[in-house]
Design a protein around this nucleic acid. Structure first.
Lengths: 349, 349
DNA sequence: ATCGAAAATATAAACGATTACATTTACCAA
DNA sequence: TTGGTAAATGTAATCGTTTATATTTTCGAT
């Protein structure tokens, strides 16, 4: 009577083969408990009717969700500025890393740290995901504490300092600053500005620490007026250049933590009548290879965002499979791309 | 004996209240079939034990997933260039639109149209989502055909022409080109170049059509050498400026379809020794307000990406609830922000 | 008080998978 | 043949919810 083609289930295969649900289920999951011949029969039947397992049934029964939650801390919706554009590539990279698996990426956009915690609690309580990917880490990160307490698999994009070992992927910020400063010293710079992300973020702190180490290594006094931290929008970069440039002893080099702030810094140059390469220079970190198209092109530390993205994907899958966190920690050093010689010129010499 | 605190279920509440699962279930969903007093009792018990409904159970029983699939056509992972597709902001906007609901955004990164169709088929077959959001539409779009055939709720970001009515959100590309060209004509321009997205995309075609209409309205011959279409990376914008600038009769104005190509075009200016405002001008469309920070700042049509994003979210929820597609169609006209006067100067006059 | 209809609640069967446990089959040795 | 063990398969419960259907309660009209 039922003319509608129903989606085949395990029972469909039972009916076709005369086997029981238990056997079919095991055969489909290639359990060694079932005879190879039987398995072949089951697989043939499954193939024939186009069976595919219904994840909702699996989820209810086993609690496995095959979902990876990615928490994205999105800027408040009113302030639409160029910030975090590379998140899209990050997400797609993660997603591609799961291609051959059953896993999918579920996105959780949250506004701030507090909302992130609330969301995480829900994800854990309702088992909405098998693992979590976080970004924007802090030295002490409540989200990490929460996940570790719950024994929930996760990977961070960024490091922490006040927690037990956990899986992470990060850019080698220490390496970047070390290399950048050594290079700038080499070229005669002594007044170097740091355009940094918000102070509470780990990578901002790492950058600042290395910066101070390098300064003291070169025998240069630390001048707090040359360091700024805030959300890395173009507006921020621009404003900081304009402020710092009017110091009695302005910087001759700016190290910007991303493309957006570097673009803003360049905009600040032109607004203040500064000429890049003559009055001062800008170095940047770039995920998108976009600074090649700035006017003028900037020297950057370039790391295609797909690299960390795919690692995040692999790490979370391994974390779910129970790999030791120590084996899931990766620091990536970007490639230095020198697009201008950045030598100190003019009167400051 | 069981000391482990189990997650409360409907049965827990049954045990507490002496009611049946049916009644408790209905009470929790505020069915009018249950007496207000009973409902109060159930709600009190639920509150007390911190009950929250287990979506896996609901999904299995009802087929409702409370997931919105967002298909993101991501550039192949080897070519990491900024294409200016603001998926990150788009995703977060959609996600925010679902904040007060049970719905979540699930991300499906696909490489191309074919993979998108395969993915959609799976989503429908395995009921992995209740609705779908698509972008990068074509006049005839196989994905749209697929979804309409299946009667599956969806919203597109971009329009189509060869299908029955469906929900969509789009930028008013016709309005943009119309306004931009009228303004440029006003300022003396006759040779206007169009830096367009790939030719198969709807919005590219809309832009081209309006462009040609405006030209013929002004009595200007259409010159195909002034129109280029490809993926809107900075590299593309740059290359096109360099090519077109060396024409015998080069353009005096470029209309770029996004920020990324506009940035590249500017880079092409400086590489070719062109000065913006003297030799030619660039107008752009901008989702991120980033062209304010270009050197020099460009005149743009600015539409904060959060606007369409939230509309996409609302539309898909309404589409799932069964609203007529005709009532879920929105064209958004960006705001014209004039950052340079763009008057034609120099010898070309 | 009694009846009947409407309102409220209860029973039990799904949804599609997994899995503890029971049963059958196969196979070998005595 | 018989018995015993291991291998293979079957039975049935279960995950947490919804919902068709059955039963009980309520309450007004007679």
């Amino acid at each position: 009577m039922n003319t509608r083609a129903q989606r085949p289930t395990i029972k469909t295969i039972c009916a076709m083969t005369g086997l029981s649900t238990a056997t079919v289920s095991k055969a489909l999951r290639r359990s060694p408990e079932v005879r190879p011949e039987t398995r072949a029969i089951v697989e043939a039947a499954a193939e024939k009717v186009g069976y595919s397992t219904n994840l909702h049934g699996v989820r209810l029964r086993t609690g496995k969700t095959y979902q990876i939650a990615v928490l994205m801390t999105a800027p408040t919706s009113d302030a639409t500025e160029w910030e975090g554009v590379e998140y899209a590539q990050l997400l797609s990279g993660i997603s591609h890393a799961m291609e051959e698996t059953r896993y999918r990426v579920a996105l959780y956009a949250v506004r701030d740290h507090a909302e992130a915690q609330e969301t995480l609690r829900q994800i854990i309580r309702d088992s909405q995901a098998d693992g979590v990917i976080l970004s924007g880490t802090r030295p002490y990160d409540e989200r990490v504490a929460l996940l570790q307490d719950a024994g929930f698999p996760f990977v961070t994009y960024g490091t922490t300092t006040d927690h037990g070992a956990h899986a992470f992927v990060d850019t080698d910020n220490d390496g970047i600053i070390r290399t950048a400063m050594a290079r700038l010293f080499d070229r005669g710079h002594r007044r170097i500005a740091l355009i940094n992300p918000p102070a509470h973020l780990s990578y901002g702190q790492t950058r600042l620490e290395t910066y101070r180490q390098m300064l003291s290594g070169a025998g240069i006094d630390y001048d707090p007026r040359l360091v700024a931290h805030d959300r890395l929008t173009p507006g921020f970069g621009r404003a900081q250049v304009m402020v710092m440039h009017s110091l009695p002893d302005p910087p001759t080099a700016y190290i910007c933590a991303n493309e957006a702030s570097a673009l803003g810094a360049l905009s600040g140059f032109s607004a203040s009548g500064l000429v890049h390469g003559r009055d001062a220079v800008i170095n940047a970190t770039d995920d998108l290879n976009v600074s090649a198209y700035f006017t003028p092109p900037l020297t950057t530390f370039y790391l295609p965002i797909t690299r960390p993205a795919e690692l995040l994907g692999h790490h979370i899958l391994n974390a779910i499979d129970g790999s030791a966190p120590e084996s899931l920690q990766t620091l990536l050093m970007p490639e230095l791309i020198e697009r201008s010689d950045d030598r100190l010129r003019g009167s400051a010499c």
